[in-house]
Design a protein around this nucleic acid. Structure first.
Lengths: 223, 223
DNA sequence: GCCGTGCTAACACGCCCGTGTCAGTTAAAA
DNA sequence: TTTTAACTGACACGGGCGTGTTAGCACGGC
């Protein structure tokens, strides 16, 4: 049986994925067209369609590739060891790794927003695995936050921090971070990076008010 | 001089605006095409283009009309008098008027998001009047919040609430509300309306921690 | 009744899109 | 060297888009 020249499909697809990411950053997810990505990669549409039969397949692959890229870029920064002056500063530096505070992180957030847009338009139907995976970025962050909160607090390391309370604080922080990111992306100039950093620290100082608990409702947010 | 039949341009444009709003709700701002809006209104493209020479003019008008519609629908609800059991509940019911907690408010938020998207793609250049106007929706809410905070707090009505502190709390709440709205729109099912209501009240209970101030930086957010 | 202007709607042009088809090319196996 | 299957790239089709043009229509004034 003859075996003609064979190209590494996975590598070609990865190459396509990088080109598509450039297209997303330039024109958004709607700009990820068969013709557009092929041109960006320097191919013809026929060649591209030999690897992706559909525009749907192309976009689905690109979204998955973008997800992986983001995980590889953001997670190490979030999880890298820190020597923070205070618990507030420690958590703040973690959270800031995911906020669009400079050009690089703005790119990352734009990519993430494109993934969210895709998953909103194409609900995962089968299993909720996909965007749960996305959310894991924030989720894993607030988990790290929990570690910082309970472990590194110098003065009150032994204070009772019931899981429900920490869970609530994490949910509050998660939501606040979403809002901060939304403001940084949608209305730049209205809130600067420095403003965002200050606001974040203000919230971190305010939200676990040392003694009094914010009276957690029974599981205020889903798993 | 002969004066043939004359139609009320403003009324026709308003009619077009309503059709365009339906299109936005169905297909998003990108669906606001000359052909699409004309078909939605039951006109021909030629007729439409007699009132709007450009797609740009059409979309600009639609965005403005949407802004006005939102103001007319949301502001009265925000400003209506309330008899709240507590300050937290009072502010919560105000803020909830702007959160996409049911189908109607989801529609309003989708329209508002379309306006924000437009203004992000077409920066106002001349003056920052336009989206400042948009932001005024939230802004005016947090102003109402300030009134509630200082006036209606039963137990500690005379406590010193320096303007800088209230300003900071308002900014924190504003950002939190943005995040809550973003989560409700982008990942429904992840956080339900009831979850959002609970989270909001948890934040309101936590953020002004009765006595200790969150140590406001000098003007943490712009005007 | 007639006119002329404002309005209407149909068509045409060029562009970009997704998709299908298919002759040509390439390189590994025989 | 020949074969052959995988790969390439160009073209065509249908459709939607923005926009320009233009013939026809309606109706207030004469």
């Amino acid at each position: 049986m003859n075996v003609p020249r064979l190209v590494d499909h996975d590598q070609r697809r990865a190459e396509l994925g990088e080109a598509a990411i450039r297209v997303i950053l330039r024109e958004g997810l709607a700009g990820v067209t068969v013709r557009g990505v092929a041109a960006e990669a320097g191919w013809s549409t026929g060649s591209l369609r030999h690897y992706f039969g559909n525009q749907y397949e192309l976009q689905a692959y690109v979204v998955q590739a973008t997800t992986d890229t983001l995980r590889r870029r953001v997670l190490p920064r979030v999880q890298r060891p820190r020597t923070a002056d205070s618990a507030v500063e420690g958590v703040a530096t973690i959270v800031e790794e995911m906020l669009p505070l400079d050009a690089g992180r703005r790119e990352e957030y734009a990519l993430w927003a494109a993934v969210v847009e895709w998953e909103r338009q194409h609900p995962p139907e089968g299993g909720s695995a996909s965007w749960n995976d996305q959310r894991a970025l924030h989720r894993q962050c607030v988990a790290a936050l929990r570690g910082h909160e309970t472990a590194r607090e110098p003065g009150q390391a032994a204070l009772p921090h019931p899981d429900a309370e920490v869970e609530l604080w994490a949910a509050l922080l998660h939501t606040f971070v979403d809002g901060l990111a939304s403001q940084l992306m949608n209305t730049p100039g209205q809130v600067s990076a420095a403003d965002a950093a200050q606001l974040l620290r203000s919230l971190l100082r305010a939200v676990p008010p040392a003694g009094s608990s914010p009276s957690a409702g029974s599981s205020p947010v889903g798993p």
